[in-house]
Design a protein around this nucleic acid. Structure first.
Lengths: 243, 243
DNA sequence: CGTCGGGTTGATAACTTTCAAATTTCGTGG
DNA sequence: CCACGAAATTTGAAAGTTATCAACCCGACG
């Protein structure tokens, strides 16, 4: 039952009470294991998308390309996350997904997933909950773009990412390994690469966080939380109600 | 069967093939019809939320309040939309919902909705599709905030709103009635009220759109679409796949 | 009337981008 | 193991966009 050790199962079970049966159905869903090379899109805007992936290892991000050539990253996906879940009901994807690192992912047929929804309510809820949490994260991201300045935005983002990674055991209060470049930050946070660089230096010189050499280090976690106005509680989002 | 005439049913049926049975289950879901006065929150951040509403008449918006006092509007809800759908699986809402106009809405118990999911797959898909579309809209909103300047942002927003309203028969290419104030635009688009006012004047003087007296008028629809770089096709999002 | 919620305008300040160029890091082939 | 080129990071200066502050206007309403 290697399933139980996967980041995916770990995440789901930490929020829902899943029976043995549920877990079996879950594990039956997983079909081929696929690898993707970094930098090459896994999902393309406007293309049909009939499969969902569960990220087992590696990071990816979903983004939109504007006609102007600008790129907006909508969110980053880390181990345990779904890829393309939102678009299973659309005939074509409305976003692109690109790996940041080499990726290992399990492929799930969209139709199988939908079928499972009526077979096991508990699993359905857990998966729906994951989808809702994703939307919630996008909304949070939106709030940051709308109402925070560059420094708060970056600080908040790094904290949020840390909180997500901690859920799957990939971060601590000290920091985490992070394969993102400053360009990724810029495109996610709606800033120019140059400005991201400057603000990052600022945060480092203030002794709050260091973003360097593929690693995020929280130099003063408490102060950073205050500075960014961060309430990490959305991650406790309480999971699907367990009646 | 007044259901069939509601904006809600109109929207769902325009995307999914629903049988008579489906429509009956749908209509059984609707319980009390409730009214809400404008300006008073219907759903409060951090409060328990065990019901979902379907907006029958009036406009509302969901927003987040930052500790700094700033307000970020996440999205506007118009007739036919769900209110609080995303949060049915969380124990408490992570956003506030406030009516802009007097509201009439049908109350649906979250648990009933979830039960219906296993009863009728077609309906479940349709509802899920609606939820996915909502998330898609939030993502689009996010892209606008991240990568468009004030004028494009406003132009794009007014077009998008128009497209949504057209789906429920409340707008045409000429324009639509719009109860929003400039403050609403500012808080939705991450701009200051003053700047919104200026840009609105600009757009009006360019002969593109007029936002005045509770009405949005497309003075030159084609030119506005070009200016805003708008592709109205996300609304065709093709609905739930109909196998 | 007087007030209050929108809306409007000008002047100034703050924040961010853009352009340009130098420096460092890192993977790959020799 | 080193050299080389590409990618990523860094810094400065100038230009642009948007926010903030401060008035003022206007129509609705008690």
């Amino acid at each position: 039952m290697q399933m139980l050790d996967s980041p995916f199962a770990r995440k789901l079970t930490s929020f829902a009470t899943l029976s043995h049966t549920d877990l079996n159905i879950l594990s039956d869903l997983h079909q081929r294991r696929r690898k993707f090379a970094m930098g090459r899109d896994m999902v393309r805007q406007g293309h049909p998308n009939r499969t969902v992936y569960v990220l087992a290892d590696g990071w990816a991000f979903s983004y939109v390309l504007l006609p102007s050539g600008a790129r907006q990253i909508v969110d980053f996906r880390i181990p345990g996350d779904f890829l393309g879940l939102r678009s299973i009901l659309f005939r074509r994807s409305d976003q692109n997904v690109e790996p940041i690192t080499p990726i290992e992912a399990s492929e799930v047929l969209a139709s199988d997933l939908i079928d499972a929804f009526s077979k096991t309510p508990a699993l359905a809820k857990a998966v729906l909950w994951a989808a809702s949490r994703d939307e919630s994260m996008v909304a949070d991201h939106l709030v940051g773009l709308g109402r925070r300045n560059a420094a708060e935005r970056i600080a908040h983002f790094l904290l949020e990412l840390g909180a997500r990674l901690r859920l799957v055991g990939l971060a601590s209060n000290a920091g985490y390994a992070c394969p993102l470049t400053q360009y990724h930050l810029a495109d996610a946070l709606g800033l120019s690469d140059v400005h991201v660089n400057r603000v990052l230096r600022q945060l480092r010189e203030m002794g709050l966080v260091t973003f360097q050499n593929g690693r995020v280090t929280f130099d003063d976690f408490a102060a950073l939380v205050t500075f960014a106005d961060f309430e990490g509680d959305y991650l406790d989002h309480n999971g699907p109600a367990r009646q």
